[in-house]
């Protein structure tokens, strides 16, 4: 969908068209749910966070600043909701080492190599993980990521660089392990 079409939908939704907002929901729900799965301790939590995100977005649609990308604004709300739900449940993502309980692992198609996002969640901090996801899975610009995370652009640049180094190091460790034990 083009930016102009999205803008038309947003304006219509602001005017009270629930159908227009329903189109926006359909446009973003899968992408947001995929992201929220990486941020929540269970599939149910991710679904709750998604629902809360759309409710908040619709309610406060008039405060949306069109200078931002709509997706940036949505991700910002989603990050807050995921954080809120995790704080209520007091579950650390690092504790989800058990594959049966990890919603992210359950949703990954079986593969010989470990999915990099599972490694990323293990080696990166919360915000750095989110920045990495927005950069590489969502192709967001540094500026948009900074806005979504409410951080400076220099923070985003530095931490994306660190994330890359950490992931590279983890990948090397994995490949060395595979050579030794393979």
């Amino acid at each position: 969908m083009r930016q102009s079409d999205e803008h038309i939908l947003i304006e219509a939704a602001k005017a009270g068209s629930s159908d227009a907002f329903a189109d926006l929901v359909r446009l973003y729900q899968v992408r947001l749910l995929r992201f929220l799965l990486t941020r929540c301790a269970s599939f149910a939590d991710a679904e709750d966070a998604l629902q809360d995100t759309f409710i908040a977005a619709y309610r406060y649609l008039n405060s949306y600043d069109p200078r931002w990308r709509f997706s940036t604004w949505l991700y910002r709300i989603a990050i807050r909701n995921a954080h809120k739900i995790r704080r209520e449940n007091v579950v650390e993502l690092g504790d989800l080492s058990d594959e049966e309980s990890d919603p992210l692992v359950q949703c990954i198609a079986s593969s010989e190599a470990e999915n990099l996002w599972v490694s990323a969640r293990r080696v990166l901090g919360d915000e750095v993980f989110a920045a990495t996801w927005l950069r590489y899975a969502e192709d967001m610009s540094i500026k948009d990521i900074s806005q979504a995370l409410d951080r400076s652009t220099s923070w985003t640049k530095v931490n994306l660089l660190r994330a890359r180094k950490a992931l590279d190091a983890d990948l090397n460790r994995q490949s060395e392990g595979a050579e030794v034990y393979g």
Binding site: V30, L37, L116, L167
Partner: peptide, 15 residues
């Protein structure tokens, strides 16, 4: 690395 991250994100099968 960027390619693999993109590919792995798409492998997260969500409905």
């Amino acid at each position: 690395l960027a390619e693999q991250l993109k590919r792995d994100a798409e492998m997260i099968d969500v409905k």
